[in-house]
Nucleic acid binder design. Structure first.
Lengths: 212, 212
DNA sequence: CTCACTTTGTGCATACGTTCACAACTACCT
DNA sequence: AGGTAGTTGTGAACGTATGCACAAAGTGAG
């Protein structure tokens, strides 16, 4: 389920506040879903709650972590270190969620060799050349790749990543990537998100005009 | 529908290549969906195709633009001009898709006054103070706001934007925002996307172990 | 021990999105 | 004109996700 990460985050915050027991109502409210939906989602993992009481926050958190595969560390390679690539590399939310950025790759000779601090603990990483992509990926044994390149380069980078054994790709470039079926591709498109908002904005405006 | 922006992008590319007629098969393949799904999506807008021939690419593109509200220009305010905010401001895909970044707001005094080039045509914008948020939003009459702040500040910024009349919000901060029902909130969470990939990666690994 | 109260887990009904299959329509060739 | 190939639009079947409602199970007071 795609909502597990949300529950995971909410539970993290809750346990940090020292709360030990949480009901489905509370957890659902904090996650922005209905309590019935939440209970069904959690029952998918097993019966980790106790009736009349609620869920043990820490225990439930651990179970979700296990289900999400967050008990291990996933090495991640980022290709394309422009503004977005920088933002991703610096994003603090990765380190404590089972991800470690282990490779920064760009095609721009100007950028190669530049150092970037990744994560919040100040680890330093050098930007490496696109030519060495295969070598880098094999060295760090990355299964997850992030594409933050311009649209024109995305498909080529994708093919090369897949050739090196990468099986999960997060794509920020505004193109539809084609790969074999066994590769998981997720797309995040900034313009698309705004367009969806504009769509609703416009429908709102239309409805208004009818009323007025 | 959430797939309209994809069709829009694909159609843009197709018309730029001078292609005048396109069948549902072709368009579906380029968009990564099935042809039946695409036809149903398009029939939602009306009957803009001709049987036996296909769709007139330019005409269909215009109809989608109209439906998405892209025939007008939406002013957008970005709050939080860190790495991600910069990436968004520079993102070239907005300008030619009906969006204009008209406000950059940050809380950091160091950043205020700094100039940023937004879009690809080199328009220059000054970063303004969070204190002036209300004034700025009212001045440019923005209905769409982007939150790229740290998690701790997001809810406060959201409330203030809504108070100024913003009715659509794109949230990059890793928190669940609570607002009134009439405000459209979309969330893009980078860590969540990676977690979903890791989830599939792990299941893949589990299955493998069983076989081995 | 019993009773009143709380909360989970789940069977069932409903709504939604997707796929299938085909009638309706167009273009073109003979 | 008639027939064949190609393509859209859509009704019907299917599967999945959501919401409802309640039995099962736990807690605590008297």
């Amino acid at each position: 389920m795609a909502r597990l990460p949300i529950y995971h985050r909410v539970l993290s915050q809750i346990t940090e506040r020292g709360i030990v027991t949480v009901s489905s109502e509370e957890l659902a409210a904090a996650s922005g879903v209905s309590s019935a939906k939440l209970r069904k989602d959690l029952s998918f993992l097993g019966s980790y709650g106790t009736r009349g009481v609620g869920y043990d926050a820490a225990y439930l958190l651990y179970q979700i972590q296990r289900e999400l595969g967050l008990t291990q560390d996933w090495p991640v390679v980022i290709v394309g270190v422009g503004n977005l690539g920088h933002a991703l590399a610096n994003y603090g939310g990765f380190a404590n969620r089972g991800f470690r950025v282990v490779g920064l790759i760009d095609a721009d000779p100007e950028l190669i060799g530049e150092t970037v601090t990744v994560g919040r603990d100040g680890e330093i990483l050098k930007i490496q050349s696109l030519n060495d992509l295969e070598k880098i990926v094999n060295e760090v044994d990355a299964l997850i790749g992030v594409i933050a390149t311009p649209a024109a380069a995305a498909q080529d980078v994708c093919d090369r990543l897949v050739d090196c054994g990468v099986t999960s790709i997060l794509n920020f470039a505004p193109v539809v990537l084609t790969t074999t079926l066994d590769v998981h591709v997720r797309k995040v498109d900034l313009a698309t998100e705004l367009q969806i908002l504009a769509f609703h904005e416009q429908r709102r405006g239309d409805a208004h005009e009818v009323i007025v």
